[in-house]
Design a protein around this nucleic acid. Structure first.
Lengths: 236, 236
DNA sequence: GCAAAAGTGTTATGAGTACACCCATGA
DNA sequence: TCATGGGTGTACTCATAACACTTTTGC
């Protein structure tokens, strides 16, 4: 990681949304520092790299996926926005800090940073969370039970969720959170998780089918003592 | 203008929307260089300044207004995004360039820049376009007859318009483009200018009144041989 | 009275909501 | 046959669209 190759004072933070067990989840990194610091997956932008490319690279590092749906949603640039929590830790422990193999460049790292917020939607089943050298753990946390974040990352997640809700219907992006095929109930439960409110089953089905983007496939026999639901696939 | 005091490689560009004569307009600067270069009003971010504050400062410089409605809408960060047009000009004219009283710091200024796009809505009657030392002229251009812009500024305006359209209804922000009081027809013509399509007069009126944010004032007698329209004021 | 534009009313349409009902499935 | 959950139909409400009609204003 050559700090010289990055744009200074500018970073990217990613809110990676996944969905499982009727819960909307966010991928969270616990930093590999001797203090409990939770962070969104983030990184810097190379001088010769589009910002969207940088976001994709960061996402690929943590999820091992490419072709991820992602969207830039807001820039966070408060004047005092610095990595103070880490700085506090360093002063507390009074020892040099390694970010991976590279000793932390204090001058570079502790300047005020402006960060570009991206959110990504992934099929949680396809993701094997990868920890980079900076991470102690990388884990999924339910949206309503997040760890105490570093800096303004709690705010970043909140704003990402607002934007996700704003776009889920219009842009037909919810399917990125589901496997290739899914039942109508699963789709509905996803919507309920995102909006944190129930939807009427029949009306939900009518609305989704009227969008004209769902292909009905074979029935899914689960062994349960009830009518087998159809599977659907998202098309175009 | 102390370049050292700004965040490097990060800028702000503002799409300042105004409205007059049934036309949506954008404030455009012709740079004070011996080449025809048109630019959006923009600037840099001080190290000790919120990005929103920086945008307000830039807006105040060009419009002499404070309390402007503005919204961050997108970041433009293509890898090759540089002030090449100016660089071309310099190579062509082979003379040192002054930005105001300060000689241009080539190393600083010709790096790749990431820019944060803001759009602002102003009452065009209250604005007296101010040219900074960087501007030759600052003028209003109709949205559908813009000059050939510098860099990616054409794209920035297009994206700003998309976002304005997306928000005009939801956020009730159109009134920022009108004077304190206005007739229903004027409001409708504004909407028609923004969306570039006609609205049915009666239905438009019904929709606007149902929002519950318009206070009906006295009638406006124009001297025309027809029924005098009511004036309205936007409330809360 | 007349043209022009403002204000209002009436009906049709379509999306969304709430209710009910029938069907398939496996025990 | 039964409970369970899936699929569908129908009536109601509400916002919007499309039509028409009346009113005000100054010449």
């Amino acid at each position: 990681m050559d700090i010289k190759g990055f744009i200074p004072q500018l970073s990217i933070d990613c809110v990676i949304f996944g969905y499982k067990n009727k819960e909307l989840k966010v991928l969270v990194s616990k930093l590999s520092l001797p203090k409990e610091l939770f962070s969104l997956p983030g990184g810097f932008i190379s001088q010769d790299e589009d910002i969207d490319q940088a976001a994709l690279r960061i996402l690929k590092e943590r999820t091992s996926l490419k072709d991820i749906y992602l969207e830039q949603f807001k820039v966070f640039g408060a004047a005092g926005r610095k990595n103070n929590a880490i700085l506090d830790f360093i002063e507390e422990y009074k020892e040099p800090v390694l970010l991976g193999e590279m000793e932390l460049d204090y001058d570079w790292f502790f300047k005020r940073f402006v960060t570009i917020g991206y959110y990504a939607l992934v099929d949680i089943n396809k993701v094997k969370p990868q920890k980079t050298i900076l991470d102690d753990h990388v884990d999924w946390y339910p949206i309503d039970d997040l760890p105490p974040f570093f800096m303004d990352h709690t705010q970043i997640v909140e704003d990402a969720l607002v934007e996700l809700r704003r776009n889920l219907d219009d842009k037909l992006i919810g399917f990125n959170l589901l496997p290739e095929t899914f039942t109508m109930r699963e789709l509905q439960e996803l919507y309920e998780a995102v909006y944190d409110k129930p939807f009427a089953r029949n009306n939900f089905q009518k609305r989704m089918l009227s969008l004209g983007v769902l292909e009905r496939l074979e029935k899914k026999f689960t062994g349960a003592a009830n009518k087998a639901p159809y599977l659907y696939r998202f098309i175009s």
